[in-house]
Design a protein around this nucleic acid. Structure first.
Lengths: 334, 334
DNA sequence: CGGTACATTGTAAACGTTTCCAAATGCCGT
DNA sequence: ACGGCATTTGGAAACGTTTACAATGTACCG
């Protein structure tokens, strides 16, 4: 492993000069700079980032901690983050913490000294563990976390509004029995989408019927199960709002297998508008979220926080959602 | 930022003792060990990994370098890698290098001193740059790379066999004009699948017709375009083999929009069997690859290489593929 | 009671960088 | 000719760890 010491020796200078020649150009003579650069190239030198970070206390790496890695949603978030990070000259240390609590805390602590900041998506984040798990003042951008935490930047999508728009749209098509397949309880996104669902019902003058709100966990399998449960309930709904596209696609699958036509017999709407949504049959009506932009913006926010280290006020931004009407909801013209 | 020095002072011992108390249990008295641990807990100490890696020359991090981050395939690979890494106490440094050449080389070099080893998926990897970009002897596991490189472990899927099985299956259903929507040229997976396609044709006694081999790039959009091109060609095929599921789904979409029934008018087969394959309509016949296991095994292989540092012989393993018959190919019973 | 072995602890070097500070060199103005 | 300044360089400290080695104390054995 070739170190800067080897480069210095090869170029016939001290390691201090070698170090300077490799970045701070103006402090070193042109000729020695060239010599050092040449030597470095020849020896295929590349600096040991760990050692550098020790002295500069900058790792040029951000941590990315997600609740899970399955599915297009997280995939797109990661893509957005990584793209922005790479453009800014940063690396991404990726980790998934399946549940909160000690596991999340341990994951956070194990990142110390490895990352300059953190993008943390934890819809179940309660805000209390940051004190224990993170050095105070450590730059963190929270993704889709409850608004209880005011000590960090945070980025959310307009869950409630989006869900409400979806339900309003379905009601506008004449549906009076609109079911929801929920996300997992205690999850901020899930709760907000449920809230939007209820608000939409209320706005349309429809009652909230508990038997039309079935549980789920954002997986395709849960969508299947949810749809089947609704069918089995004797008095099925005429429209189903799934709290994410994965479940909507699972529901679509289950209905098709049960001989139910979508949208003629039952209309379906999803949430997130993952890339796959437009390709399924029938194409899925969904609440569009610019997922990769969510990641992108989170990373960008983090980098700007890394520039202005302290004394800044934390912001909370909500990304807008838009209803994307496709065939699965049965609106005419699609 | 609390260092081991603070912990030592708080516990009233030297930093050496503090360090020892935190892992090498047997070299320190029980009482002091407890005292140090208590102090560390109280101060929320967690060691600076960069500093530690400097002396141990172990980062407990592996680099993951993928050609792209879009789509379920990469997403599943990442999931498999991360899961295994986490179980082994390792972190993942994720990066995407859109093309080979300087960008890939730079990405590799920028990882020096940050990672203990590397999982590198580069289907266009030519093997020559490893000398320049990587220290010799640096543990690397290649994913889906051409077999030209014998200096590294490598993991591949049975591309050729899988494609061949698919074509054989389609031919067995009576199809005589079987088209392929190819992957991007120069890509190892793409080339192998094309080779399997030709072998399958040959085996079925069918000629290779150049006009039935349209280009693609593994994206849904390419699948759409490919299918439309085949339709526009005056004499369309009766079956289409898309070199991955993304393109197959795109093709499905295009055919549906063109009023072509699948599988009645045209049969379709894909490759990879991404999770979404079974949910589309009609469910997609595909060549199953255990994608997350691919990532998992790559990581496991890397870890075992990290144990036995040198002098080992490099292995090349090929993951088997199995044909999964669903409705899109028109086989009876599905 | 002296010596040896062991258990426990501390001192200091090392890892590969960056950067502060001082030293060396050459140039200029007076 | 000489002091002062600018430019370029090197020595050495520092970052937070781990660990080889030395030092201390204690117990046991003869």
């Amino acid at each position: 492993m070739v170190t800067i010491r080897d480069v210095a020796r090869a170029a016939g200078v001290s390691i201090a000069t070698a170090s300077r020649a490799l970045h701070k150009d103006h402090l070193v003579a042109q000729s020695t700079r060239d010599a050092v650069r040449a030597a470095a190239d020849r020896l295929l030198y590349s600096p040991h980032r760990g050692a550098r970070s020790l002295i500069t206390s900058r790792t040029h790496t951000i941590g990315v901690l997600l609740p899970d890695l399955y599915g297009e949603f997280f995939s797109e978030v990661i893509r957005g983050i990584e793209e922005t990070a790479q453009a800014a000259g940063y690396h991404c240390l990726l980790s998934s913490a399946r549940r909160r609590g000690p596991s999340l805390e341990a994951a956070l602590r194990s990142m110390r000294g490895r990352v300059d900041g953190l993008v943390l998506m934890s819809p179940e984040f309660t805000g209390d563990l940051s004190k224990r798990a993170l050095p105070t003042g450590f730059p963190v951008v929270l993704l889709n976390s409850p608004p209880t935490d005011v000590d960090h930047d945070s980025l959310t999508v307009a869950n409630c509004e989006g869900a409400q728009a979806m339900v309003r749209h379905l009601a506008g098509l004449g549906h009076r029995r609109i079911a929801i397949i929920q996300g997992v309880g205690g999850n901020f996104d899930a709760d907000e989408r449920l809230r939007g669902y209820r608000a939409g019902l209320h706005q349309a003058g429809l009652p909230f019927a508990p038997e039309l709100a079935v549980p789920g966990d954002f997986s395709e399998a849960a969508g299947e199960a949810g749809a089947l449960a609704l069918l089995a309930s004797g008095h099925p709904p005429t429209a189903i709002f799934a709290a994410n596209d994965g479940m909507a696609i699972g529901a679509l699958f289950a209905l098709r297998n049960s001989g139910i036509r979508v949208p003629e017999d039952i209309a379906i709407g999803g949430f997130d508008d993952i890339p796959m949504a437009r390709y399924v049959e029938p194409a899925l009506t969904s609440v569009h979220v610019d997922i990769s932009a969510l990641g992108s913006r989170a990373a960008a926010r983090l980098f700007s926080a890394l520039e202005r280290p302290a004394g800044r006020d934390f912001s909370r931004e909500t990304l807008p959602t838009t209803l994307v009407v496709r065939r699965s909801c049965g609106a005419r013209g699609n």
